[in-house]
Amino acid sequence: MSIVTTITGPAIPLKGDDIDTDRIIPARFLKCVTFDGLGEHAFEDDRAQLNGDHPFDQTQYQNAKILVVNRNFGCGSSREHAPQAIARWGIQAIIGESFAEIFFGNCVAMGIPCVVADGETVERLQGAIATNPQAELQLDLANQTIFCGDITAAVMMADGPRQMLVGGTWDACGQLVAQAEAVKATAAQLPYVGWSKIVA
């Protein structure tokens, strides 16, 4: 599994608080049994309403790797289709003022860091990117620092999930499965596990 320590590339600003997962990927695109093809539908309805003026449609941002957002990004449903759509569009890391919890967890499970910066830093970054869309932004996850032109600022990600990314253990599945015996022992201690079986 890959280690996620430094992500460098052009960025894309997306302004607004409380951008929910229905806006990131409208529910009609959830009618699928794979995540393939979700990238092209990221923010579909918001983009249609802005008629080409949505950052995800603007030519200067088409090779962006890092998304810069405001508060409570990804609130709403648990649909992993939302970060999957953003990732398949090309985003590898997100910087924001704050993130909704399930969205954040989904991103970690996909190897995508969501780091938090204060409102002033986010505003400066969004402004700097808009002025110079080809500027390289560098996220140093190990040192929790962001660099963009003459901006150097602290960013924050909780230790547990950050360690999973930096240490390359963000795909928890293998580690969890390896503990099967301990899992069974824990289950055996829980009174309710014996009460009712729900086998098909």
Binding site: F35, E80, I102, G105, A109, P161, A172, C173, L176, Q179
Partner: peptide, 21 residues
């Protein structure tokens, strides 16, 4: 009780556990 994403659904199916803070 809490909501999870699809990668975590995979984790629960495979291990009946989740990695959580």
């Amino acid at each position: 009780a809490f909501g999870i994403g699809t990668s975590q659904v995979r984790d629960v199916l495979a291990s009946q556990t989740l990695a959580l803070a």
